[in-house]
Structure formats: C-alpha cells, structure tokens
Computed example of a mutant assay.
Amino acid sequence: MDAFYASVEQRDDPALRGRPVAVGGSRERGVVAAASYEARRYGVRSAMPSVTARRQCPELVFVKPRFDVYREVSLQIRSIFADYTELIQPLSLDEAYLDVTRPLRDLGSATAIAEEIRARILSQTRLTASAGVSYNKFLAKLASDHRKPDGLFVITPSLGPAFVESLPVSRFHGVGPVTAAKMERLGIRTGLDLRQRSLATLVQQFGKSGPHYHAIARGQDERPVMPGQPRKSIGAEQTFERDITGWDDAQTALQPAIDKVWATYARVGRPARTVTLKLKFSDFRIISRATSYGTGIIARAEIEDAAFRLLRGVFPFQMSVRLLGVSVSRFDDERAAAAPVLEDLFSLAAAGGR
C-alpha cells in the first residue's frame, strides 16, 4: 500500500488531503510511523523522531494513529488477495507476498492479476497500492518500490540480473544502513560490484549472509512464499565504528535501535511481551539478556526501560562493546485482544512505518 496509515487518514479527513501528514508521535515527542507523500518531499520518513520531522517540515500535521481502522482496511485487502491465491505471506498490515504460480483465478499472467488486484483495492478502499511482479521474492519487492506511488513494475527472468546490477546496494531489501556502509567501504556500491565478489569473499566479509548476497546479486532468491507465518521477533542492532566502554555512550548508542524496533512494532499490530538485549564484545563474543512483561508492550518507553535495565545488569562491561541490539518477541496470538492495546500506542510513546 502507498503510505498506508497516512493515506487512510487523508481518505477519511478531507482537510488532510494535499497536506504533509505524519501518523504517530506528536509535535515534540515520539516517532513517525508513516508519512504522506507530501511530507516525504520534505525528507520526513517513518522511524524519524517527531522533533526532527517538525524541523524538516514546519507545516507537518501530526495525526494520532487509528489501528482499528488500519486493521479493518488490511483485512479488506487480504480478502481480495484470497480470491487469487492461498499462498499469501503478510509482512505487515500494508504489505504481502503472493505466489500466483497456480492462481485460483487465472487471468493469463501474474501482471494481469496484479492489475486486477490494484483496481479492486482502489474500488473497495479508495486507496492506491503498488505492485511488483517477478519470479522471486527479492525481485518482486524491488519491483514494488520502483514505480511508487500507484504503480506496477514487472521484472522478467531475462531482465532480472541486469536490473539488479544497476541498483545501489542500499536499495536492496535486507541490506540495512550499517551493511550498506560496510559495503561502501569495501567498494561495493551497486549490484554489479556485489556480483563481482566471489562467494568465499562474501562469506568472509559478511558471514552467514554472504550466500544470500551472492545469490541476489545474480537475481536469484529461492525463498518460498510462506503463508501463515507470523513473525516471531522484531529487532535492530548496530555495529560501531569505535568500540564503546562508557554508560552514557552505550545509552546513546542504543536509542536508534529502540526507535527502529518501536516503529516496526507499531506497524505489525500485535503486542509482544519480551525485550532482549544483545551485546557483542571486542573479542566477538556475544551475550544476550531478556526480560518479560506480564502484558503486551504498549509504549516505546517500556522497550527503552527494559533495555536499559538489562544494560545496567551487564555494566561495567567485561571489555569494550562493538555491537548493541534490542528486540521484542513473544507475540500475543490473540490478535483480537490487540485492538484496544495498540490503538493508543503512539500517544503513550516516550520521546523518540511507511
């Protein structure tokens, strides 16, 4: 979906149409969960602290999220998907993979199916969706972003390798800012640069992710569409240019990971109960510590408080720290119970989607 949360708000409130809108946070506190395309022209993005977004766009309108409405629209969209295939893998409320190799409604091509799905979404929800059509998940994801908003792009088997080689690696789904920066330092700027590295070299430089990078640089991705597989955790971590030893530095360094986890957590729409802290020391030894709440997490402050309590439990550090990460897990399977909990997420957020 195109700027899903913000587009729903603009659909339902004519006064917001054509204006830069941020869902989540407030003028001074919290983090942006979604930004309208008008706001994106000013550089406002999801996961951005509200105070930063306000500096970027002084005219920005902050809107409280309505997760009950977003979930209702998401269910409408998924019911459309179900007319075409049983193989649906939701990534969040506003995005999913569909395998239409053997469609329930055969229109002659995957492209024709995508066009009909987009038309039905617009007719039934008055919202626009963008679609990517390709022969694997990696390329379909790239294609879905290529003509946003309200676009459709097809990457055929003959086009796949050439399409990948021309793109910056920072555009690859699954290559985050830290990995992209490392690739940049290694002279890997495009898919072609990545393709020129041997499998052995990529494994040496990126560990278990090496084979994946080797494959996607060639337009290959064997991952199947996995229906009914809710995510089991949401995490973010950062490797530092210089190792950390002090408490204040560690607290500061952990904040971006907490912001990323919170922004994604709000989009998933299911409450989690456990917070886990991950540390990697200068000798590459990894430890983790976890704590759980009796009820689902409803505020960013709860993630932050738990992470800092866990951090305090391992301080002073045995040696300098090269990586810090945080994750949430133990999602509540009672999705219906999530509605009143998640409805007010951002109004409860401490200072800091798509």
Rank of each mutant, 00 (worst) to 15 (best):
R189Y: 12
F153N: 01
D249A: 15
A257M: 13
S36T: 05
P168I: 04
F284M: 09
P65G: 12
A350S: 14
G228W: 00
A131P: 04
S288E: 02
Q255G: 09
C57P: 06
I80H: 05
P14D: 10
S170H: 03
L104R: 11
G43I: 04
A250G: 07
E115D: 12
A22M: 06
Y97E: 02
R335N: 09
A53S: 11
F206P: 01
A112M: 09
K278V: 00
P103E: 06
R78F: 14
A307V: 00
P340R: 02
D259K: 05
D259S: 10
K148F: 11
T239F: 02
D99P: 11
R322E: 00
L186K: 12
W247K: 06
G235F: 07
S233Q: 07
E38T: 05
S46M: 11
R66D: 15
Q124A: 15
R40L: 13
A263I: 04
R300S: 15
D283F: 04
A96F: 08
A114I: 04
W262F: 12
L342V: 14
P149S: 13
Q229F: 04
K208D: 07
V341Y: 03
L167G: 05
G132Y: 00
R40C: 13
L159C: 10
R270M: 10
R11M: 15
Q56W: 09
L202P: 03
L199G: 12
L345K: 02
K182V: 14
H146Q: 12
R185E: 15
P58E: 06
L345T: 08
E116T: 11
R231G: 09
T264W: 01
A6N: 10
D333I: 05
A200C: 11
A200D: 13
L279N: 00
Q318G: 13
E304T: 06
V73A: 13
R197Q: 14
P224W: 01
V225S: 08
L192K: 12
I244P: 00
E86F: 04
V23P: 05
R78K: 13
F153P: 01
G228F: 02
G191M: 08
D68S: 15
R231L: 12
E237V: 07
Q220K: 09
T190C: 10
R335Y: 07
A306P: 03
G246Q: 10
L91C: 09
I216N: 02
F281K: 00
T101L: 12
V178F: 05
Y42V: 08
R242L: 11
E116F: 07
K182P: 12
S170V: 06
P90T: 00
A272T: 00
A131V: 09
I88P: 01
G108M: 08
V169T: 09
E165T: 07
G246M: 10
R300W: 06
H146F: 15
R102T: 13
V154I: 11
L104D: 04
S26F: 02
A129R: 05
E38F: 05
R309G: 04
H173T: 04
S26K: 03
F281N: 00
V69N: 09
A236R: 03
E237F: 06
